[in-house]
Design a binder for these strands. Structure first.
Length: 262
DNA sequence: CCTATAGCCTGACGGC
DNA sequence: TGCCGTCAGGCTATAG
């Protein structure tokens, strides 16, 4: 699930629920989701701390602790956060459960365990180690930087948009949505795109990501003319009435309109 | 250097 | 209702 807009929604949720409350208890699972630290050590490092703020880079949520360390979360395909205080039915697939001094809990869940939780000294070092590219929604990401990134690239636009070392945050769904909006075929090589089209792609990217955040990254909230609502083989394109096709591109199921994406 | 593929995991959904 | 196959919004290691 979680691409840039989803993680931005998680970040806002985290900021609204989980800042400036002492962590009185931390439970970490033994699963592979916890990276580079033992569950016991992670628990000990978190206990007694509070969160000061949360940042995001691409698909990573980066929470700063009162001890000047960083709890960094990636949500894989199925990760999510839940803040709650009921003791009802226990939730499944929890990998990190924090209890705050107001008796509310924050759970990181991930059934498929493709997500990741890190505890780091420095977020700059972390981003460097992961070789992450620019976050396209950070204010300083400009058209000129986008053009430089695209220059001379022979790969398909689909692969380009999803390459986390170039642009951090765009995944399968939103790369499709951006290309759909810009009316460009996902298999078109980056360096075959005209200057005008490259500029249109850039503005579609900004527009779609911004809109997705506005809609809470929740499919149900999107208007009907988004591709999101029509991700089915042989569906009708809500823009031109053409046929929606599915094809594996860059290793992922890519949906696009046969008619208006050239 | 590049692109393509398999593998990691569990759950949901559709067809029989 | 149950069983089976397929698919899923990510990323990495490996092979060619």
């Amino acid at each position: 699930m979680p691409e840039l807009p989803d993680v931005e929604v998680f970040r806002r949720y985290f900021n609204k629920t989980s800042l400036n409350k002492e962590i009185i208890k931390a439970e970490a699972s033994k699963s592979r989701v916890i990276k580079g630290i033992s569950p016991q050590t992670l628990q000990a490092k978190l206990k007694g701390n509070s969160f000061k703020s949360a940042d995001r880079h691409g698909k990573y949520l980066i929470a700063s602790t009162s001890g000047n360390k960083f709890l960094i979360m990636h949500f894989g395909m199925t990760g999510s956060l839940s803040y709650f205080n009921n003791s009802g039915e226990p939730m499944k697939h929890i990998h990190l459960l924090l209890e705050f001094d107001n008796n509310y809990k924050l759970a990181y869940r991930d059934p498929r365990k493709f997500g990741a939780i890190y505890f780091e000294e420095s977020k700059e070092d972390f981003l460097k180690r992961k070789n992450l590219g620019s976050d396209p929604m950070k204010g300083n990401y400009s058209l000129s930087r986008f053009k430089v990134a695209a220059e001379g690239k022979k790969e398909t636009l689909k692969a380009f948009l999803m390459d986390q070392t170039i642009l951090a945050g765009i995944g399968n769904i939103y790369s499709d949505e951006i290309l759909f909006d810009a009316g460009i075929h996902p298999e078109k090589p980056v360096n075959k795109l005209s200057k005008n089209k490259l500029e249109e792609l850039f503005s579609s990217m900004k527009k779609i990501l911004k809109a997705a955040i506005k809609y809470g990254a929740d499919t149900a909230n999107f208007p009907d003319d988004y591709l999101l609502k029509h991700r089915k083989k042989n569906a009708e394109c809500p823009k031109c009435g053409g046929k929606i096709r599915m094809k594996t591109i860059a290793g992922r199921s890519c949906y696009f309109c046969q008619n208006h994406q050239k």
